[in-house]
């Protein structure tokens, strides 16, 4: 019985909450138990942002993720803050464009993705978050990559359909990234 706790953290404006929402919706479509909890308040306006996502086969207890099984960080303060909080054996996804240092821990699996650079090169500079999520799905199978567009449709406004393809592109870039 899987009970997976995900913590996603970075700056406000990097789409941290959006990335978490996408995971939650995709999990919901797969019939999983879900919770999504954002940090809220002044963080939304340019400070640090994080969100807790739990995807589980059993009912979710506390929606607060203190010790993640999967950690995704998109700035250095977030890595500094949460590296030691991740459980032993967890998988840690690091945007290596924005975070130059490596993890100090040896008991977790680290994945370094230059997501911000890849996004800029691909002309989708605001979608580094989804490149990270693509890689996360590949390495953890927290949700399935099948029917991925259905999950996107839940979080991308129908009025902005052009964004659907761009998000899909970002997810695929991350999913296929080898590094």
């Amino acid at each position: 019985m899987a009970y997976t706790q995900v913590l996603i953290a970075g700056f406000g404006g990097q789409g941290i909450l959006f990335a978490g929402k996408f995971l939650a919706y995709k999990g919901l479509l797969e019939g999983k138990e879900i919770s999504w909890l954002p940090s809220y308040g002044p963080e939304m306006r340019g400070g640090t942002a994080n969100c807790s996502v739990i995807i589980s086969d059993t009912p979710v207890g506390s929606p607060i993720v203190s010790n993640p099984d999967i950690l995704m960080v998109m700035n250095l303060p977030s890595l500094d803050k949460y590296e030691n909080a991740a459980v032993a054996g967890s998988k840690v996804f690091v945007d290596s464009t924005l975070i130059e240092r490596k993890l100090t821990r040896q008991d977790v699996s680290a994945y370094y993705i230059p997501a911000t650079k890849l996004a800029q090169e691909a002309g989708i500079p605001t979608l580094a978050n989804m490149i990270m999520i693509g890689k996360m799905i590949k390495e953890t199978s927290i949700v399935s990559f099948d029917d991925i567009t259905d999950g996107l449709k839940k979080v991308v406004s129908a009025k902005r359909a052009e964004l659907l393809d761009l998000n899909l592109k970002a997810l695929q870039m991350g999913y296929n990234y080898e590094g």
């Binding site: 929402k21 939650a24 919901l28 138990e33 879900i34 919770s35 999504w36 909890l37 954002p38 809220y40 979710v60 929606p63 607060i64």
Partner: peptide, 10 residues
């Protein structure tokens, strides 16, 4: 409370 208000669940 703030958690209940802000969190999303099915």
């Amino acid at each position: 409370d703030g958690t209940m208000g802000q969190m999303m669940e099915p």
